[in-house]
Design a protein around this nucleic acid. Structure first.
Lengths: 208, 208
DNA sequence: TAGATTGTTAATCGATTAACAATC
DNA sequence: TAGATTGTTAATCGATTAACAATC
């Protein structure tokens, strides 16, 4: 079904189609690229190109079968087995992320959390245990952890990142404002909340 | 000091320069665009163009005075007075965001949180009180709230967003996975964590 | 002076959009 | 058949990068 190469911009839009389609009312059994484009404020040709990269279920005059398109998108993201995940930094944000129920839908399984604060080590957060950072390497190495979530302060992030990649992680979800340096095959996805606040501030400023 | 028009991509990079500069060791009193580019993995011409849009402190041979460049960047983001902020949706994520200390640096002041769950209404979160969503419009309208943070489920987000913009908000920080529709002068900054997970999943998949 | 850096003008690249032919 | 939709090929647009002149 899927096609050759997917550009970065397309890759970033695919999840938006998926979440849009998933919250469509049940009676929408067919959906056109045109109507998706309207709802998401995208160009309709762009939507068609994006969808063509993961699905060939589009039919002239009628569009896509909604369930089929959802299935095609999910197939694009899902692996055969789920991947283990750890969270490092158990402040309120790490805590919130540990309690999220979004992981399962994308084949992720949060298996442990880490912190260096004696007062939280040993406690539990939902189903998982909070372990000392000193055990991070061994745990990830033994447990085949593929994704590491970093919610530490900026100055601690690079070292944690190194430990994660050295122990086998190939993806990092970075909530610190540090610029992380990683081996070529590792993806760092930045969720830089401080930078977001700056952008929001700039908008408000120029709105007078 | 600043220049005419700033492109979206440039605007999104400016906060990254700021946080990079801010965590530089104190002995780095001068910094060149070339070295910033190397550290952040950007093209050096791009960095120079970006910085030129907020500062004219660059001097051939020596680069920028670090403190001056930081001040120029901060001047770009800061308003004369700070703006009021509310958070809607007091799950663990809303809670974490309410406790963050990042706001002040960008001239934001979190003044209240809202939820519809009777069990949390009336409680406090740090310095702020959790109020019922039914009071959202009146509170924001009277308090001149400019930024609204949405951490509700996807299906509740649009209605909350409408209430926020109708009561005077001109910026929305959206942590739900809903695509929000707003008046033209309102900025929605999406922090779509579900979409991020999907992108991370896709990377892991194609790494085999 | 030589060299490192700056900022600018021109070339390249890639992504978006427009035009169009094909299909049911 | 007419019309809505699809997917593709070509044109446009904007952003990145390369080349270069200016400066200390």
């Amino acid at each position: 079904m899927p096609k050759q190469f997917i550009s970065k911009n397309t890759l970033y839009r695919l999840p938006l189609y998926l979440s849009f389609l998933k919250c469509l009312p049940a009676e929408c059994d067919m959906i056109s690229a045109t109507s998706i484009a309207e709802s998401l404020n995208f160009n309709h040709v762009q939507v068609r190109k994006d969808l063509a990269s993961v699905s060939d279920g589009g039919r002239p005059r009628v569009g896509y079968k909604t369930t089929e398109l959802i299935a095609d998108l999910e197939r694009f993201f899902l692996r055969k087995i789920s991947d283990n995940v750890v969270i490092v930094g158990m402040g309120p944000l790490g805590y919130a992320l540990a309690l999220s129920s979004d992981y399962k839908a994308f084949g992720f399984n949060v298996v442990a959390a880490f912190d260096h604060d004696e007062r939280v080590i040993g406690k539990r957060c939902g189903d998982i245990e909070i372990l000392p950072v000193s055990r991070l390497y061994d745990f990830c190495n033994a447990g085949g952890v593929r994704l590491g979530i970093i919610t530490t302060p900026q100055n601690a992030a690079q070292k944690i990142c190194d430990t994660l990649t050295e122990s086998g992680a190939i993806a990092i979800w970075n909530f610190s404002s540090a610029k992380l340096h990683v081996p070529e095959d590792v993806l760092v996805y930045d969720e830089n909340l401080t930078a977001s606040l700056a952008i929001l501030a700039a908008h408000i400023k120029q709105s007078r």
